[in-house]
């Protein structure tokens, strides 16, 4: 299992981009931390999440 925002999820072997999209989120509007390190947007398609990884997805909304 992978932990996404503290919740267990079946997401191993998927890319960060796939996971973000499957959550219904826009890759341009999120910040992602994987095992304590920020994943750059340019790497979302390359980084593959593994079993027991811990991922935080911050989804931003507009207004300020």
């Amino acid at each position: 299992m992978v932990k996404i925002n503290g919740q267990p999820a079946e997401a191993a072997e998927k890319t960060v981009a796939q996971i973000v999209t499957e959550q219904g989120l826009n890759v341009q509007r999120v910040a992602v931390e994987l095992n304590g390190d920020i994943v750059k947007r340019s790497d979302f398609d390359k980084v593959v999440v593994k079993e027991d990884d811990s991922m935080e997805i911050v989804n931003f909304v507009g207004g300020g």
Binding site: N26, Q28, A31, E33, K40, R41, V58, F60, G62
Partner: peptide, 26 residues
């Protein structure tokens, strides 16, 4: 005010400015 810009600065500060703390509004 734009969500993609909020995401951009978060990525930049947290990955490229190692000792800086970011306080964001969303």
């Amino acid at each position: 005010d734009k969500a993609d810009q909020k995401a951009m600065i978060t990525e930049t500060v947290l990955s490229d400015m190692k000792n800086v703390i970011l306080v964001s509004g969303s």
